[in-house]
Design a protein around this nucleic acid. Sequence first.
RNA 1: GUGAGUAUAGCUCAGUUGGUUAGAGCGCUGGAUUGUGGUUCCAGAGGUCGCCGGUUCAAAUCCGGUUAUUCACCCCA
Length: 417
Amino acid sequence: MFVKYGYQPIETPAMENLSTLTGKYGEEGDRLLFKVLNNGDFLAKANKEALEHLDSNKIVPSISKRGLRYDLTVPFARFVVMHQNDLVFPFKRYQIQPVWRADRPQKGRYQEFFQCDVDVVGSDSLMYEAELIQIYDEVFAALGIEVTIKFNNRKILAGIAEAAGITDNFMDMTIAIDKLDKIGPKGIREEMLKRGISNEAVDRVNAILETKSLNGLKAIFSESETGRKGVEEIEKVMQFLNTDAAKNDVKFDITLARGLSYYTGCIFEVTAKDVKMGSIGGGGRYDDLTGIFGLKNVSGVGVSFGAERIYDVMQELNLFPKKDAAALKVLLIAFDDETHNFAFKTLGNLRAAGINADLYPEPAKMKKQMKYANSRNVPYTLIIGGDEMETGLLTLKNMTEGTQEKLHIEEIVRVLS
RNA sequence: GUGAGUAUAGCUCAGUUGGUUAGAGCGCUGGAUUGUGGUUCCAGAGGUCGCCGGUUCAAAUCCGGUUAUUCACCCCA
């Protein structure tokens, strides 16, 4: 599907320099980075002072310079900068690889998990925001998962902070309002107060969050150019999208925040309906990520699918098909060495005719072989004894009906194919 | 990073105030049925009670440590 939308596959190394990874995901993200111990006599080069005081945080830079990637976006940005002369922009790629987070594992949360990322860099066209939402919509529809695709814009959040006069507390504010659906308006009030935001500012923020219409937001952002820009971007994306045509709920949600600190514009998040699980996909636009690695003025936008969580959701909703098309069609059963040998040749004929067939490995008791056929859920068994071998009329048994008839091999092929 | 729970047969789990030989269901093996499965009945096999140490006449049971795992918070896919 990614290919259909014009994306090419790439892969990047599991390990990156820590300098590449740190500072891109927020404070919490840095803490969750897996760090790799340096090779060689790393203790000799360790920070002696930190070593003496058993200061783990302080000693890390002197004994570890590499880490496992935390997501696919940041390594991708590095990749783009590295290959900037060979790539044609806008460059569209998808990437399916594991990432690592030193989190404490629990339900829907793994220390190693696969992300499927779809990104486009080298264009700030809002067409791509719309396209990525369409990809989300189409993928989850194909998987049979009903989802809510929420989107927002960091600029709107920045506008709120400006309008409330708390630009310094931008992160604190977003972290708080991100929890609205979880802890309610009262909860986020406490959260913001706890994080050192003044009472009046909290009132202003809450008032803005109440605003339902985009035009209402525009009015509030009369003093905030960033805020207005955010609203305009949302409007443009919605113009591209025909939300009526979407198979899932696609909606603007002003409380969507997202923790990764590199996002600058539109942000996305996907949650499954009817399943208690965190987000199963997320993404956004990042204007400056390649700039950090030395390539300025290249904007990118991308979304990510969390493979394990999607699997868990499908498991919980029973969405995996019970029978797979590659299942065994017939099991051959023989009684002694002679018929077993004959059955093996018959097996070859059936397989040559394109029928998924198997033979019990030895001429065991029939009961045992039938039981095996049962547990493998085979629709047919083919019984080959002395009579069958002599007459060429083999006993084909329908395991669901319990009926059986004697047929020539040609007829059997016809029935089974 | 903070907090809580769990660990007993292949699997899911009982196991009382510490007290004879640690149980059940499912699964497995054999039989009732010489070449006919799903249902039934009978029999059997299978356990260093996570690991190390302590208390005790006696520990699956109590205590300490350790490892694994699950869950919640934080945060996130």
